[in-house]
Computed example of a mutant assay.
Amino acid sequence: MKTLCFAYPGDLETPTGGYGYDRKVIAGLRDLGWQVDLVSLGDGFPFPSQSTLAKARELFARVPDGGRLVVDGLALGVMDEAAAEQAERLDLIALVHHPLCRETGLSPDQAAELFQSERKSLTHARHVIVTSHATSDQVTDLFAIAQKDITVVLPGTDIPAPVSRAASGTTRLLSVGTVVPRKGYDLLLAALADLAELDWNLDVVGGLDADPDCYSALQAQVVDFGLSDRVTFHGAVAPKMLPDFYRSADVFVLASRYEGYGMAYTEALAYALPVIGSGGGAVKDTLPPRASVYCGTEDIDSLRQALQLLILDEGRRRDMSAAARISAAQLPSWRDAATQFALSLEAGDA
Rank of each mutant, 00 (worst) to 15 (best):
G281A: 14
P9F: 02
I26E: 06
L242S: 11
Q138R: 07
T104F: 01
A54Y: 04
L307A: 10
D301Q: 15
P274K: 09
A196C: 03
L174N: 06
I129Y: 02
F115C: 04
V293K: 14
A54C: 05
G17Y: 13
D209A: 15
T171R: 00
L69K: 04
G20F: 08
A84L: 14
G226E: 09
V71D: 02
R23T: 06
G20S: 11
H97N: 13
I145R: 07
Q219I: 04
V222M: 14
E267C: 09
G169N: 13
W34R: 01
D349S: 12
Y21P: 03
A342N: 10
E314D: 13
G296F: 03
P99K: 13
D11T: 01
L106A: 09
V63P: 09
A191M: 12
A322S: 12
L187Q: 12
T232M: 15
L59N: 03
M79C: 14
G235V: 04
L53E: 15
R68A: 02
D43R: 08
R57I: 02
Y246P: 06
S248R: 15
K2V: 01
D158F: 02
H133T: 07
V39A: 10
Y258A: 12
G28P: 05
K240C: 01
R230G: 11
R102V: 09
R247V: 07
V283S: 05
G44I: 05
P274D: 09
R325L: 07
Y265I: 08
V78S: 14
D194W: 10
Q86R: 05
A125F: 07
Q110V: 13
G348W: 01
G42Q: 10
G105W: 10
I93S: 05
R57L: 03
Q340R: 14
Y246G: 08
G226S: 08
G206V: 07
A75N: 11
A323N: 06
G77Y: 09
L345G: 08
C101E: 15
A249M: 10
G20M: 04
A83W: 01
V130H: 07
D91V: 15
V231I: 15
A161N: 07
S117Y: 02
S344Q: 05
